[in-house]
């Protein structure tokens, strides 16, 4: 009896209709939280009448796309972090897109040479310092994080987090592996505590007096300023655009790529074009305090008030290329230990 009920229930569930690719749809595999991209998708639906369907996960979507093969329902993949999007290219899961709109909206250094991905936003990896305990201008570069004068005064999240890995990769690209190892050992020696938590937690730690300096993405700071409970905490730190006078501040991207198997290819390209348009870019800028990839759109007033960012001109592919070295380096210096 139980068996029969269970079997029947399983069959009914399996037979439930799901995401059958009809016309007027576009299917998204997203590494970004659904609620973050929803306002953009709503605007897209309103403008074009094309429905959007989303699966969000932090890992495993590339494997799913790869195994589903030519029958995969996914049209586009949305990611954060250059390495993750680069991996899709390396595994040959994404297709080239030729679109005048996209090429006009997104500068050359923020897209793949063959159109295999396009950045939608950029974010700087910044340094935060205590307004009380660190003088303005006392630290201005990533390199200085390894200066022994900061011993026991720096907080960061895990060295293995993609954002830190990308920063370390950019250091390898600029200074070579050996010098970067010296730098990372110096930084490790300066840590106030074992790497833990996320970027906001490090800003909180400064407010708490655990440390005086931290590393974090720009929009986390912006989001904290926009949250009335967290604003008093964020207001205790000063923001530094590292290496502003030199090679520029390390940036990372969030981006989008068309899958090779896309069943709704035209709609997918429409979505990509829409997301690069001034209208969508403004939503990105305002709602999540990121830097729009489209140079025609200015950052939000809040972000602009921090001063101008001078991005490091290092090609993003170069950063992705040093990923494996960076990951192993973090292990070698036992950064998280």
């Amino acid at each position: 009896m139980r068996l029969k009920i269970a079997a029947a229930a399983a069959l009914i569930l399996a037979a439930l209709p799901f995401a059958a690719s009809a016309d007027g749809e576009v299917n998204i595999y997203s590494y970004r939280q659904a609620y973050l991209i929803n306002p953009l998708l709503k605007a897209f639906e309103k403008e074009t009448g094309i429905e959007t369907n989303v699966v969000f996960a932090k890992n495993g979507l590339a494997e799913r796309l790869e195994r589903e093969g030519r029958n995969s329902p996914a049209d586009v993949v949305m990611t954060v972090d250059i390495s993750r999007i680069n991996e899709l290219v390396e595994r040959d899961l994404v297709a080239s897109v030729r679109s005048d709109t996209l090429e006009k909206n997104i500068p050359e250094n923020l897209r793949h040479p063959d159109g295999k991905w396009f950045a939608l936003t950029t974010r700087g990896r910044l340094i935060y310092t205590s307004k009380d305990r660190v003088k303005a201008g006392e630290i201005t570069t990533y390199e200085e994080l390894a200066d022994p004068k900061w011993k026991g005064r720096i907080c960061t999240r895990s060295g293995k987090h993609p954002y830190n890995i990308a920063l370390i990769s950019s250091m390898i690209a600029h200074h070579g592996l050996e010098e970067t190892e010296q730098w990372l050992r110096g930084l490790k020696a300066n840590l106030a505590r074992k790497p833990q938590g996320a970027d906001r937690d490090q800003i909180k730690a400064i407010a708490e007096g655990v440390c005086d300096v931290s590393i974090g993405n720009s929009y986390y700071y912006g989001n904290m300023l926009q949250d009335e409970n967290e604003r008093p905490i964020a207001e205790q730190v000063r923001l530094v655009f590292p290496n502003a006078d030199g090679r520029g501040t390390h940036i990372n991207i969030s981006g989008i790529a068309l899958t090779k198997s896309a069943p709704n290819r035209d709609n997918a390209i429409k979505l990509m074009e829409f997301l690069s348009s001034p209208e969508a870019q403004r939503i990105y800028a305002e709602a999540n305090t990121e830097y729009p990839a489209n140079p025609a759109v200015k950052p939000s007033g809040l972000v602009a008030s921090w001063g101008e960012i001078h991005p490091d001109a290092l090609p993003l592919q170069t950063i992705a290329a040093h990923r494996d070295e960076a990951v192993k380096l973090v292990d070698r210096v036992d950064f998280d230990g």
Binding site: A10, L13, A14, L16, F18, A19, S21, V55, R64, R67, E68, N71, S72, P73
Partner: peptide
């Protein structure tokens, strides 16, 4: 197409 993948099954 995909019968089982990506379903509640």
């Amino acid at each position: 197409g995909l019968l089982l993948s990506g379903t509640t099954f």
